[in-house]
Design a binder for these strands. Structure first.
Lengths: 158, 158
DNA sequence: TTTTTAGTTCGAGAAAAAAAGAACTAAAAA
DNA sequence: TTTTTAGTTCTTTTTTTCTCGAACTAAAAA
């Protein structure tokens, strides 16, 4: 049983920042759980607390909690004498998400490369060249991003 | 009236690469128009040609053509004595899309920063510090990406 | 002037995604 | 052993997104 007093954010704030987070194609309930855990103090909550604060269904909480656990965005700890799990954001691991973001560039890079291959036998050297360049560019960018992440992590360790 | 013979890609290929493009949250018809224009030779088509090749409704073609025109992904040219517009991809301008992609990092950076501000009065210095760092990191990353794009463009000009 | 062309716009319907609710389960507590 | 707790799973409902078709429009052609 938790005795320490919790400081919940104002619901309005969670809504506002939740909407902000939706802009990155994150579903509403997912966004609100994320933001809530980002704002509450101490920075962890039980399933029940999340559900009651947000006033959403258990199944939605379950769904997104599990999604975030799988993604590695979330983790939980327990307290002895208390069966509940207390969920918190693994903020450190957001870096992994960035790596994943770099994946989009690989997707588009591969798309371009595939198109380039398809065109090989056609005679529009200009377009072909443009495609080749684009594929290269997106690859360059994806790799560049990886480097940026590494660079930052290194700098942080000093 | 266009007389030059067109080389259309195989429909299967457009489907396959279209599906690949859907992976980046692009709607089916949008993806297929994009891929078709990427593969056809010469690299432009009329509204009608797009519609007939893809076997979709005029309204869908209209919708995504206009979306792409607004986005700047697409442009068109005309030929004298021919009322039709011939649409082609503005591949050069994909760079702008990348800039836009960097925007996502600003979104998340701002989200973190907002959360950081909200927490100022709470006493979990560790979490607060982590948030501040994350905001900083995403900003770093967004800016780093801009630099990468600029770097590439500069290198290309040589 | 009438007709055709090259699209656009406006519902309506289908399909997919998100959320809800109710029934269930496994482990712990009583 | 029975009950409660802490969730999970499955089905249904709601919402949103995508696509279509039919009616419309503005400019050009006849």
């Amino acid at each position: 049983m938790e005795t320490k007093e919790k400081h919940y954010p104002e619901k309005q704030v969670v809504e506002r920042l939740g909407v902000q987070m939706e802009k990155m194609n994150t579903p509403p309930v997912h966004s609100r759980i994320f933001v809530l855990l980002l704002l509450v103090d101490p920075p962890y909550l039980s399933f029940e607390e999340i559900q009651e604060y947000l006033q959403v269904s258990k199944s939605s909480v379950s769904k997104y909690i599990n999604a975030m656990l799988e993604q590695g965005t979330l983790d939980y700890k327990t307290f002895s004498g208390d069966r509940k799990r207390y969920f918190y954001l693994k903020l450190d691991d957001l870096l992994d998400k960035i790596y994943a973001g770099a994946t989009k560039f690989s997707i588009i890079s591969e798309l371009m490369q595939n198109c380039y291959r398809e065109r090989q036998n056609l005679d529009s050297p200009d377009v072909n060249e443009q495609l080749r360049e684009l594929a290269e560019f997106f690859k360059f960018l994806g790799e560049g991003m990886e480097n940026l992440v590494n660079e930052y992590m290194k700098k942080k360790q000093e």
